[in-house]
Simulated scan of single mutants.
Amino acid sequence: MTTEKRPQILVTGAAGTLAQQVINQLRDTCDLVAVDFREQVWLGDDIPSYCIDFNKRVFEDLFRRFHFDGVIHLGRIMSSQETRLSRYNANVLGTQKLLDLSHKYNVQRVIILSTFHVYGAVPYNPAMIDEAAPLKAAGLTMDLVDSVELENLANIYLWRYPHLNITILRPCNIVGPGVRNAMSTLLSSERAPVLAGFSPMMQFIHIDDMADALVLAYRRNHKGIYNVAPSDWVAYQKALDLCGCKRVPILSIPPIVPRTLLRLLNLRRFPPYLMDFFKYPVIIDGRAFAREFGFQPKRSLDEIFHYYLENKHPV
């Protein structure tokens, strides 16, 4: 009697909480290899873990050794991390190397985590943004150029190499325990800035639900580009109230004013590249992903905000 071969999957960004949740969901049914270019993490004796720069020759050795069936690429550096050049090298050139190796070694499934930030925040965005909308972020701020180029690159490989079965996910704000992005930092603060006169509608997805979405995306082979977001949203200032944050109004113009005031008040800061996302709503339409993959978030907004209400971090 022969047993069915377990899929061999490479998971990048292994030092992140989201990647570790995905790994925990897959470890009973798949053979996993974890990689991160920032640090090596221990995930148990059953999961080899490496700290490797994707652009180094040693990265290809992993593909030769393990014969990956699939890749789940979560190792994108956020725009608030590192320098612009190092982000470009990691996010764009590193992803290109990953996709080239996936093609060379006959990988059959690739999942790439992107972000809704690629749409850009502008006052004339449609009420619901679907996957066909143009990616305006690169024209608005240099700090999101690498995110848009990563997507454009993945899109080229999606059509050039159909056997890779590439699925690109654009989630809304990912929040919850262990998340260290800008939005989670603001929601967990005792005092949080708001731009005077602005309170855009926002969407939030719990990290548990995002991990579920990634696992679903891997297991159900529907290649293409998909937004990932719940069907409800809330105004930013209302979200702060529900999280128990004291709102501190800040003037939004000229651009130097909010940055200077936040520094003087010793407040959590808006990342400059995200400033417009705290002015204008960017509501993405997640119905295509829900329909194709049978996805339904389990964590409500009330549950998300209650976590931050109970877990405040002083400035």
Rank of each mutant, 00 (worst) to 15 (best):
V175Q: 05
S199F: 07
N125M: 13
D31P: 14
E151Y: 04
I9W: 03
V215E: 02
W159A: 10
S147M: 15
A137S: 01
R291W: 14
E292G: 02
L140P: 11
L164N: 09
M210Y: 04
K223P: 14
G16D: 01
A192C: 11
L186P: 12
T3P: 04
P7H: 09
L186C: 04
A34C: 13
D241L: 09
N152A: 10
W159F: 15
P48G: 09
G75E: 05
I52E: 07
A182T: 13
K298T: 03
R191G: 01
K298C: 06
S252A: 11
V228Y: 00
P123V: 08
L150P: 14
I52L: 12
L74K: 07
H67Y: 12
V92Q: 02
G70A: 03
Q25W: 09
S231P: 15
L158N: 07
F293Y: 15
L309C: 05
W233I: 04
R269E: 10
R299S: 04
S188M: 05
Q237E: 13
V215T: 03
M128H: 13
N91Y: 00
P255S: 03
K238G: 11
A121N: 08
V122Q: 06
E149L: 11
Y308G: 10
L85H: 12
M183K: 03
L93D: 02
Q8I: 13
A196P: 00
F116P: 01
V148W: 07
H306T: 08
Y161S: 07
V107H: 02
V118C: 02
